[in-house]
Amino acid sequence: MSGIDMETTRKLRDMGATALLEAIDAEDELLGMGFEERLRLIVDEAYATFTHGKVDGLIRRAGLRYPAADLRRLDLVEQRGLDAGVIAALATCGFIERHQNVVFQGFTGSGKSYLGCALAKQACQHRYRAHYIRMPDLEEAWATARDKPQGTTKFLKKYVPNVHFEAAW
C-alpha cells in the first residue's frame, strides 16, 4: 500500500483517479527523490495509463473487424501494389485534419478490410473517433435510416463528423 492515508486513498478512488493511485503505489521505492521529481514521475505514469485507457476505448468502440491490425505490420506492401510513402502519409492521420476521404479498392482477399482496420486503429491512437463499417453494411444502414423519422439526420450525425443539420428531410 502507498504511503498515503486511507482517507486520501478513498478520495482518489471516488474521483476516479485510480491510475494516479496505482502510480503512487508503483513509485513508493523512489522516496529518496525530491517531492517535485516524485510527483512528476507519478503524474507521468498515471497519464500514460489514462491515455492508454482512452485509446483502448476508442479502438473497442470503433468495431474493428481486425482489432490487432497495424499499419507498421503490413505484409508485402509493394507486392500488393501499395505505395509505402502513401501508407506512411496515411499513418500521420493528416487526411483527417484536411477532411479527406480514404477509399480502398481491390479484389476479394486483397487486404482492404485489414488495411481499413489498421488505419482506423491508427486514427484512434491519434485520439480520433473511428468507426469500421463495410460498404454493403453502410448502404443497408442508410436504407434503414431513410425509413425512420429523423433517421437520415441521425445517420448523418453518426457518420459525418463536425456537421450540424437543421434542414428537414
Rank of each mutant, 00 (worst) to 15 (best):
R65V: 14
A46Q: 03
V102E: 05
L138Q: 15
I133V: 14
F35R: 11
P67E: 06
L76A: 09
T51N: 10
G32C: 06
K158M: 06
Y47L: 14
R73N: 10
D56C: 11
R127N: 12
S113D: 05
L30N: 11
E166M: 07
R40V: 05
P136E: 05
G53Q: 09
G151P: 03
R13N: 14
I133Y: 07
V55I: 15
V86K: 04
G94T: 03
A84D: 13
F107I: 01
K112Y: 01
G81V: 05
E97L: 02
E22W: 08
R146I: 09
L156P: 00
T49P: 03
G63H: 11
T8P: 02
V43L: 14
A68E: 15
V102F: 07
T144N: 12
D147L: 13
E78H: 04
K157R: 14
T153V: 12
T51F: 10
N162L: 10
G85A: 06
A23I: 00
I96C: 01
Q150C: 01
E97D: 08
A168H: 11
R65T: 13
F35H: 14
T51E: 12
Q150R: 04
G81Q: 03
V103W: 06
L64R: 01
L115N: 02
V160F: 09
K54I: 14
H164P: 01
Y128H: 14
Y114Q: 03
F107M: 02
L71H: 10
G111C: 10
K121W: 03
E139N: 15
E97S: 04
A143H: 15
Y114T: 03
E27F: 00
L21N: 00
I87T: 02
P67G: 06
E36P: 00
D137F: 08
Y159K: 09
P149G: 07
L90F: 03
V43K: 00
V77D: 07
E78T: 08
L31S: 14
D75C: 07
G53P: 04
I59K: 07
G106W: 08
T49E: 10
H131R: 13
F107Y: 01
K158S: 07
G111L: 09
H164I: 03
M6K: 09
N101A: 08
L21W: 00
K154V: 05
D5N: 02
R13V: 14
I4V: 03
F155R: 04
V55A: 14
G81D: 02
R61Q: 08
F35D: 11
R134G: 15
G85L: 05
M33D: 10
K158A: 11
F155N: 04
R127K: 12
